[in-house]
């Protein structure tokens, strides 16, 4: 639960989880993503690596969840609308203790619980099956409507909050904007969306495929509070989530500026790594780089 990981390290002011700085956990998640995808020969490394700090901030600091009780009614809900980043979610859930990390080696294989796009009935901690892009924010709106009625903030209770992670390319789906409109209409201040703004999609740069900018202006004009944060800076992300919690009467979107394939120089910013697994040699190089970067 959140209580266990709330306090920042007294010496550095940095967020930690069980004494470990969150960036260290993030790097371990990155290693697991790369290994999982390479081993499975399937998956989406680019958009998984860009979401690592977002997921680390959420699962190791922000979300009130309990791996021992994944169905705890008063938990916060996280929806991975960009279901393609499943390997990042699985690595994060495994690190957080929802299931043993050994399971990651079954990713994408026949009979595995770990589908390439997440299945809520197969994995503890996955709140809703996703993979068809554009649908998660609507689901989040429904959750937030019910959560506001059942578990409102106040009387010493934090209230159940709903978090939805979208891709920037995903914002090309019309349904996203139907949901953006509805969340503001219903004044869902218990809902926080996060856009993993890595600026690259399968066919190339988002700006060339179908420009979504100005993203902040779009969300703002629909009635949302907007926080733009550097998406690989865990402290900045946590500050953004903290601020979102305090904004009343409207939902908040965190627009997280990220780098596709973050952490591996030959993957960074390259659409070629959207859905391509690294081979053995590439994995070796990638892991070395990820490990080196944290030690520095």
């Amino acid at each position: 639960m959140r209580e266990k990981c709330l306090a920042p390290d007294s010496a550095t002011g940095q967020a930690t989880y069980r004494g470990e700085p969150l960036p260290a956990i993030a790097q371990r998640i990155r290693e697991r993503i790369l290994t999982t995808i390479s081993n499975a020969r399937v998956g989406h490394p680019g958009g998984s690596m860009s979401a690592v700090e977002i997921l680390t901030s959420l699962y190791f600091h922000v979300l009130r969840v309990d791996p021992e009780r994944p169905d705890w009614p008063e938990r916060d809900r996280f929806v991975l609308s960009k279901g393609h980043a499943s390997s990042a979610l699985y690595a994060t859930l495994a690190e957080r203790g929802f299931f043993p990390p050994e399971l990651l080696s079954t990713f994408g294989k026949i009979n595995s619980r770990l589908q390439v796009h997440p299945d809520m009935h197969k994995v503890p901690g996955v709140e809703i099956s996703t993979g068809a892009l554009g649908q998660g924010l609507s689901v989040g709106v429904g959750m937030a409507l019910a959560a506001r009625a059942d578990y409102p903030e106040g009387r010493g209770r934090p209230g159940v909050r709903i978090y939805v992670l979208l891709g920037d390319g995903e914002c090309q789906e019309g349904q996203v904007w139907e949901a953006v409109m509805a969340a503001a209409h219903y004044k869902l201040d218990n809902l926080t969306a996060i856009v993993d703004y890595n600026q690259v999609q399968l066919s190339g740069p988002v700006a060339e495929v179908m420009e979504v900018a100005p993203l902040a202006d779009k969300w703002r004009s629909f009635g949302w509070a907007v926080e733009e944060v550097p998406g690989h800076d865990i402290e900045a992300l946590i500050a953004g989530f903290d601020k979102a919690r305090g904004i009343k009467g409207r939902p908040t979107v965190i627009i997280a500026r990220t780098v596709k394939g973050k952490g591996v120089s030959f993957m960074e910013g390259k659409s070629a790594w959207h859905g391509k697994p690294p081979d053995e040699q590439e994995l070796k190089l990638a892991l070395e780089e990820v490990r080196r970067s944290w030690k520095q």
Partner: peptide, 24 residues
């Protein structure tokens, strides 16, 4: 819940409500 002329969104919102114990 009035969702306006947006059937795709309505369907997704219904899913979210169902996940929170409702029968939409």
């Amino acid at each position: 819940f009035q969702v306006g002329i947006a059937e795709q969104n309505m369907t997704g919102i219904a899913a979210g409500l169902a996940l929170m114990g409702r029968i939409p």
